[in-house]
């Protein structure tokens, strides 16, 4: 354990020294973000408010942004903290995990919940004029719509849901839950039968013997088609619940399992290729945005 502590201490000190040396000795330094001031409404003669936009360090008007530079280092810390979990669970990962849960839960509440749903889809329907003059001025153009009283239904259902928070009477929250489950049981039942059941059968209807234009049997295409249709039937046999996998059905089901395994293999291969690209994105962040070791887009040092 002690030896491990020593190794980690050495690694941290070396990493820290590298950052200090890189920051002070190299031509370009590292890990800074620059901004420039721009007018909020450049066309307006009366509105003189300004805001900050990200700018490359090479921009003449660029100035160092302390909050964004701090943010960059925070982001780098979080990136390394999450990557450290690959070694094992540790205090940095635990901190990152805690922040991730807190920030993301609140972020969803604020965005998907409040500003994207409650305001524009509920309150804007019930009181368009009030909400329009407060946060959604587009609603007032050309004139505010009439209140949509039907939106009272989800409001009432939502309030019932909130009864879950009361010490007694939480059972009333089952009603909106029942509403959601009922509505979507109906929608999904038909949707799946139409889009998956019927359409997949239709797409699988193909000739088992394919003829060429010259009137000969195209052996290769025929084999492919037969293999495909046989595969669908074999996999369906695997999913049969009321028949034991013995005898003919058993053999068919076994072939079905092989088909399924090859299917999974193909999905596996596709996923492997996609995931490598994700890692490349984070590595780029560390080496490009944070450490300034590389500059593939030529945004700091020019091409």
């Amino acid at each position: 354990m002690k030896r491990e502590t020593i190794i980690w201490t050495v690694l941290f000190v070396a990493g820290g020294l590298f950052l200090v040396v890189r920051g002070t000795q190299s031509d370009h330094g590292l890990g800074r973000q620059y901004v420039k001031q721009v007018r909020v409404n450049p066309q307006s003669a009366t509105d003189l408010r300004v805001k900050f936009k990200e700018a490359p360090p090479t921009d003449r008007q660029a100035q160092l942004s302390i909050p964004r530079t701090v943010g960059l280092w925070v982001a780098a810390f979080f990136t390394l903290a999450i990557l450290s979990f690959l070694y094992r669970d540790n205090i940095f990962y635990k901190i990152a995990e805690s922040v991730m849960v807190g920030v993301s839960a609140a972020w969803y509440m604020v965005t998907a919940g409040f500003w994207e749903a409650i305001i524009p889809k509920l309150l804007a329907n019930l009181a368009p004029e009030t909400i329009g003059s407060w946060a959604l001025p587009d609603l007032l153009k050309p004139k505010p719509p009439d209140p949509k009283l039907l939106s009272l239904v989800p409001l009432v259902l939502g309030i019932m849901l909130l009864c879950r928070l009361l010490p007694r009477g939480g059972w009333i929250g089952r009603w909106p839950l029942a509403f959601i489950v009922g509505v979507f049981a109906g929608i999904r039942m038909i949707g799946f039968l139409e889009a998956d059941f019927v359409s997949q059968i239709r797409s699988s209807i193909i000739p088992l013997v394919v003829m060429t234009d010259a009137g000969r049997v195209n052996l290769w295409a025929s084999l492919r088609n037969t293999g495909l249709v046989f595969g669908v039937l074999a996999c369906l046999a695997y999913f049969f619940f009321s028949v034991e996998h013995r005898g003919l059905v058993g053999r068919l089901a076994r072939v079905g399992v092989w088909y399924l395994m090859i299917t999974f293999g193909a999905s596996f291969a596709f996923t492997v290729m996609g995931r490598i690209a994700l890692l490349a994105g984070r590595i780029t962040f560390l080496f490009d945005d944070w450490l300034w070791l590389i500059d593939p887009a030529g945004k700091r040092w020019g091409p």
């Binding site: 489950v181 009922g182 049981a185 109906g186 999904r188 039942m189 799946f192 039968l193 889009a195 998956d196 059941f197 997949q200 059968i201 797409s203 699988s204 492919r224 293999g227 495909l228 249709v229 046989f230 595969g231 669908v232 074999a234 996999c235 369906l236 695997y238 999913f239 079905g256 088909y259 399924l260 090859i262 299917t263 999974f264 193909a266 999905s267």
Partner: peptide, 27 residues
């Protein structure tokens, strides 16, 4: 073209039936 397509289609047909039966039981 053959194995993956066949497997995916059978899985989708099965899932559609599973969803239909589960929805019906719920209703």
């Amino acid at each position: 073209g053959v194995f993956n397509t066949a497997g995916q289609r059978a899985i989708m047909i099965g899932i559609a039936l599973g969803v239909a039966a589960t929805s019906l039981k719920v209703l």
